[in-house]
Amino acid sequence: MAVETGSLHSLLQKGVVWQAYRQPSDKAVSLSTGYPELDQALPGSGWQRGQLVELLYRREGGGELRLLLPALAQLCREGADEREPGWLLWVDPPHIPYAPALAEAGVDLARVLVVRSNSRRDRLWCLEQALKSGCCSAVLGWLPTGQEKAIRRLQVAAVEGGAAGFLFRPAGCREQSSAAPCRLLLQNRASGAEVTILKRRGGWALPAMHLLLGEERILPAIHQERPELRLVD
């Protein structure tokens, strides 16, 4: 008869009371990516809420987060005056999302949650719960190849909850089919990256576009000065 009800109890103790269902404000469905060139290429001029976006990339460090950060910042600006703005939920990121960089990009850290699941099952459960809960502005997940059925469920959940869902997946998934309505491929170049839209609603595939992805801000000194590597003491 022992029941694990830790949170039940703590909620009762804190006097948390169920609140009436609150309709989300009628925000625009689309969300600017922060990159005008990319916005132009995407249907509705940006990412779509209530949809999954799949980002294919080779290895961390190529700008996959820089591609998203302007949109996350935009979500934070939108939610700034809401009483209970939604979460930006990161499920099993491969490294530590570094708070100073997020803050610099304009992300409201109070809204960021990082989840570490114990298993693939938990990870999917978690993504599904979050996407459909209706209380997340964005859900970010990292999934390996395969997962076709799971992605379908997640897409359904995203529609239900209205959150912007971003799945980061290895470039090797390129040839696999996916229920995500929007798929992008990111490839590094000597500076910046090349972004190819593999799939979009209501449009043909487009040629790759080159984006600097904020490098111009990180490296203003890029062509003028080389550091002195031998600087000691």
Partner: peptide, 9 residues
């Protein structure tokens, strides 16, 4: 819809 605190718990 849930409240954010609910999802968290």
């Amino acid at each position: 819809r849930e409240r954010p605190a609910q999802l968290l718990s």
